[in-house]
């Protein structure tokens, strides 16, 4: 695996529309991103299609990486996970859960908040240990496999609402722990 610095440099070359840079980035990170696709989509053909989409997006969005403040591999994995999860949800739809008014009125926030929030780089492991083990495992498998609430409920043998409550409480606990 290439180092963060090397990956960041390759993303920079891609942002400059350097095709050899894209080839080198593919050689460096495609095994990681293909693994993301396989874990979430659980189908090789779908994973290959998703990997193509992911590199098309990386080519189109590489110029946004520098401003994101993210770690280079973290940014790439986020692009991959979003693509794979979107494809999965399109294949197997699940119920909506955001209420209608959420994005109607954006709370006006101090723009400086964004700078304060960015790049704190805290690790979550310690906070995961504070969660009950079954809930911690639900959080982790939701992330790694891109499971929906329904799939989590089936896997843990609990009602949908229960697993949703678990996960939301776990997220709030994690946030509280990370902010401590």
């Amino acid at each position: 695996m290439a180092t963060d610095t090397e990956i960041a440099e390759l993303i920079g070359r891609v942002a400059l529309r350097d095709r050899a840079g894209l080839a080198a980035l593919y050689a460096a990170v495609s095994p990681k991103l293909f693994s993301v696709c396989l874990r979430i989509l659980k189908d090789r053909a779908d994973a290959e299609d998703a990997l193509q989409e992911i590199f098309v997006k990386i080519w189109q969005r590489a110029d946004r990486f520098a401003a994101s403040g993210a770690s280079p591999l973290g940014w790439l994995v986020a692009v991959a996970r979003n693509q794979a999860i979107d494809l999965m949800r399109a294949r197997k739809p699940v119920a909506d859960s955001i209420d209608e008014t959420w994005d109607v009125a954006d709370a006006a926030r101090d723009p400086e908040t964004a700078a304060v929030l960015k790049g704190e780089g805290k690790r979550i492991d310690r906070c995961m240990e504070e969660l009950e083990s079954e809930r911690a495992s639900a959080v982790r498998s939701a992330y790694v496999e891109g499971l929906s609430y329904q799939e989590l409920a089936d896997r843990h043998g609990v009602p949908l609402n229960t697993v949703r409550t678990w996960l939301r409480r776990s997220l709030l606990k994690l946030r509280e722990c990370l902010d401590r």
Partner: peptide
């Protein structure tokens, strides 16, 4: 985490 629906 990725638990939301596509529309969400």
């Amino acid at each position: 985490l990725g638990v939301l629906s596509l529309a969400d």
